[in-house]
């Protein structure tokens, strides 16, 4: 099932249960999978048209009136386009708004460089009090949606729209502020967020065969990062690799480096190396940005060699 379908299904449940849960979009409801909810929730879904800044501040106004607004757009327009509105109307004003950015990083595929946000986490991560969450599979997204809705503050949700392989079991217990250990190991810590998690698990399996045992943690909440889990794992393995579908500046890699600044542990990165995106299908984009299982294996070995 596509992530957007799960997202829409969860939102429908939340709106059904509480008429104060409202959804605003900016002419991308078809892309985010929520268009089919419109008939059912006429008084809870509002299309703001191609005016994302207005959408963000309207959501803040609704929040001040006791509503629980969700807003959605593609990642670049849900982050850099509305950065000041997220900072002031939403975060500074302590409004309860959930901001959903779809098609993160290279997953924007054929929309290309203009729509390929390599910097959304970086742009938003320095805004105080804003929580940044990136689900890794449908199981986690399903578990997270009610938690996000209940969380009394602003959250940015970085949502891959299409299908992702399940990483978590059906009985998965979600904690917004705790990282999940997917695999335990002794030689290297791999911290991963979002769509590359399954690739990391496959890479870890291959590395295991070559005698490198990996601790794999899914960092679903990049801000505030689970420092305790990051430091505990890195302290155990003494070598770290971060893997993300985002510029290595400002995203997960930066967040991990900040957490480990005093730990004297080498940290290598697989991520977008400070470059813009371009058009292409995922296999091509993975190759040109180095977001491949092969590159994860190669860089993991380099990280271990630095010990």
């Amino acid at each position: 099932m596509e992530m957007r379908a799960i997202y829409a299904e969860c939102l429908a449940k939340l709106m059904e249960a509480d008429k104060h849960v409202v959804l605003l979009d900016a002419d991308l409801a078809k892309a985010s999978g929520t268009i089919k909810l419109r008939e059912r929730f006429k008084d809870q879904i509002f299309d703001c048209g191609v005016a994302e800044q207005n959408m963000a501040s309207i959501a803040a106004g609704l929040s001040s009136y006791g509503f629980r607004p969700w807003i959605e757009s593609f990642t670049p327009f849900a982050s850099r386009r509305i950065c000041d509105q997220v900072a002031i109307s939403i975060a500074y004003a302590k409004q309860n708004v959930k901001i959903v950015g779809t098609d993160p990083g290279i997953s924007a595929e054929l929309n290309g460089g203009t729509h390929m946000s390599m910097e959304d986490i970086g742009v938003l991560r320095s805004i105080p009090e804003l929580v940044i969450f990136e689900p890794v599979d449908g199981v986690q997204l399903r578990a997270a949606m009610p938690v996000l809705n209940e969380y009394p503050g602003a959250v940015y949700v970085r949502l891959f729209r299409k299908e992702l392989p399940d990483v978590f079991p059906e009985d998965y217990k979600f904690d917004l502020f705790k990282a999940d250990t997917l695999k335990e190991g002794a030689d290297l810590s791999i911290f991963v967020s979002g769509m590359l998690t399954k690739d990391v698990l496959d890479a870890a399996e291959a590395l295991e065969k070559e005698g490198i045992s990996c601790d794999v943690l899914n960092i679903h909440t990049i801000k505030p990062i689970d420092r305790e889990a990051v430091i505990a794992s890195a302290g155990k393995t003494r070598a770290v690799l971060t893997v993300e579908n985002h510029n290595i500046i400002g995203g997960l890699h930066s967040a991990v480096l900040e957490a480990l600044a005093e730990e004297k542990i080498p940290v290598k990165a697989v991520g977008v190396m400070d470059r813009f995106g371009e058009v292409g299908k995922l296999p091509y984009l993975r190759e040109v940005t180095g977001l491949t299982k092969e590159n994860i294996i190669k860089t993991a070995k380099e990280a271990v060699a630095l010990k």
Partner: peptide
């Protein structure tokens, strides 16, 4: 004070959101 304002343009959109909220209520 009913809204945090100062970054110009935003308070007006917030007011529109509040007006929508009042209509819904």
């Amino acid at each position: 004070i009913d809204m945090t304002t100062g970054s110009l343009g935003q308070g007006f959109s917030c007011a529109v959101g509040v007006a929508l909220g009042s209509k819904l209520e």
